[in-house]
Design a binder for these strands. Structure first.
Length: 480
RNA sequence: GGCGCCGUAGCCAAGUGGUAAGGCCCGGGACUGCAAAUCCCGUAUCCAUCGGUUCGAGUCCGAUCGGCGCCUCCA
């Protein structure tokens, strides 16, 4: 069964159904990182939102072709990689130095994604691998009268693209900001024209082009790689809200100016994150990378849940109290999963049984999907999961669910975990030492040697194993 | 100056004009040798404030206060 999902479209400012160009196949382009440093949790929020988006489509029965770019040539990359090089350093060595930096941080970025359970994109194109395509695109724009050359740089002529500003909902009059002309750019026809190709300055790595040595502008890579890898019409293009303008506005002008038709059907943007009520900034001491949090003992999956349990289009206030809440909420879901994986207990008497578990389950599934289909309303979707858990725990306390019912519930947990990636089945077997301790505690308990039983239980807890005595006299365990 | 978003319990948070979901925390109870897990009960007469529209508004309109964002660094 394939479900249609709706998303807020920045272009129209409305929640609209996503109707793929090709039935059953969603093409998704997400703006990736600029690899010159560690990603901070604000960046990671955006990548987590994009992963949620992708996984939701997959779980809804769509095949997703996902492209995430790696920006590996850019002002800050050049600044950080070329600083120590002599003025007469060869171009080849400059490229090598740049690559050393970007490859290092690309690897670190991918490790962060793995830790957060973010699925790898089908395409991870590096900008530097697509310079020829960018040059061809610029030539095409020039041939169409949308680009012009000034002193070895090439600029986009906004006057030639009447709908410029429609994505960010800015009108031309509102863009008269001439005071902030970038000092290192040459004279343009209009201050709002943006650069497609930058003529080389001393100390920069360069590529040859029809306009002389230079390097690509910031926006052109996404246009070139998006069209190259996903085709002339893509279903969804996403990024953080800060990319709406100028990045995505300019991408749209480049791609649609070249293609002559609409390029992206759905533009989707994730909101920012604040830390403890303040804007995240190094100067405020509230700037965190994933590694910073992990060093404080935070499980990346807890961070994942804390972020994804809030709606992606609302500013998220990250806090350590929020992380604790997320950790405890996850414990509840995971404990429920372990309970469903096990057999039902002896039972505590009759149950009102107003609804069959399977009916209750189907209701939860429908509420869950209605919420996710409505612009990824994760808070409401998770509420459906929690209500189901409370209801079934109560019933299972009285009349144990059957194996079939438990399996149906587990299938739903798998279905939701395919999206949230936070409560998977744990395959962990116990090692001999743990098994021996569990047996030792059982024996002590049978002998009513409570101090010894408690001592062994604490010992197990220190090893991450939590014991749960059941009504029927047996003892279960789970990882805590 | 232009465009836009947000303000719901101690914290997080959903909410399509019809009478406040859910999570965390907290208090009481049940169960337990004690725990853990779980369940039950209790936690907003009220949705920043003031007006208006309506039979009826957290939801629509206006104003005010407070917080935030964009208008070519930025997830």
């Amino acid at each position: 069964m394939r479900r249609t999902l709706s998303l807020f479209n920045t272009l129209t400012r409305r929640v609209e159904p996503v109707l793929p160009v090709t039935e059953g196949r969603i093409s998704l382009y997400t703006c990736g990182p600029t690899v010159y440093n560690y990603a901070h949790i604000g960046n990671l929020r955006t990548f987590l939102f994009q992963d949620l988006l992708k996984r939701t489509f997959q779980a809804a029965g769509h095949q997703v072709e996902h492209c995430m770019n790696i920006t590996d040539v850019e002002d800050k990359i050049i600044r950080d990689s070329q600083g120590g090089l002599a003025a007469d350093t060869s171009n080849e060595d400059r490229h090598t130095a740049m690559k050393a930096l970007t490859e290092r941080f690309t690897a670190i970025f991918l490790e962060d994604l793995d830790a957060l359970g973010i699925l790898r994109a089908d395409h991870l194109p590096k900008a530097t691998d697509f310079v020829p395509q960018m040059i061809r695109l610029i030539q095409d724009l020039k041939a169409k009268g949308l680009a012009y050359v000034r002193d070895g740089s090439v600029y986009y002529r906004i006057a030639g693209f009447p709908q410029y500003g429609c994505l960010a909902h800015l009108d031309r009059e509102g863009m008269q900001v001439g005071a902030s002309v970038d000092a290192d750019e040459y004279e343009r026809d209009s201050v709002t024209d943006f650069v497609l190709w930058k003529a080389t300055k001393p100390g920069e790595p360069r590529w040859d082009s029809p306009w002389g040595p230079g390097r690509p502008g910031w926006h052109i890579e996404c246009s070139a790689m998006g069209m190259e890898l996903l085709g002339e019409r893509m279903d969804i293009h996403s990024g953080g809200v800060d990319l709406i303008f100028p990045h995505h506005e300019n991408e749209m002008a480049q791609s649609e100016g070249c293609l002559g038709h609409r390029w992206v059907n759905h533009w989707v943007h994730g909101e920012f994150l604040m830390v403890e009520g303040q804007k995240m900034a190094k100067s405020l001491g509230n700037f965190f990378t994933l590694r910073d949090l992990m060093a404080k003992g935070v499980d990346p999956i807890t961070l994942r849940y804390a972020i994804q349990s809030n709606h992606y289009r609302k500013v998220l206030n990250f806090s350590f109290e929020g992380l604790r809440a997320a950790e405890n909420a996850l414990k509840r879901i995971r404990a429920f999963r372990v309970r469903m994986e096990g057999e039902g207990q002896a039972g505590g008497g009759p149950w009102k049984a107003s609804l069959e578990p399977t009916v209750r389950l189907e209701q939860a599934r429908e509420v869950f999907w209605a919420a996710m289909a409505d612009d990824l309303n994760t808070p409401e979707a998770l509420a459906a999961v929690f209500m189901l858990i409370t209801y079934l725990n109560a019933q299972d306390d009285h009349v144990a669910l059957t194996r079939e019912e438990r399996d149906a519930v587990l299938a739903f947990l798998d279905e939701t975990d395919a999206i949230f990636a936070a409560w998977p089945h744990q395959t962990s077997g116990l090692d001999g030492k743990v098994e021996a301790l569990i047996e030792a505690r059982r024996a002590a308990k049978a002998a009513r040697n409570w101090p010894e039983a408690d001592r062994v239980r604490d010992q197990l807890k220190a090893l991450g194993i939590v014991l749960e005595d059941r009504k029927d006299g047996t003892t279960g365990w789970r990882r805590g």
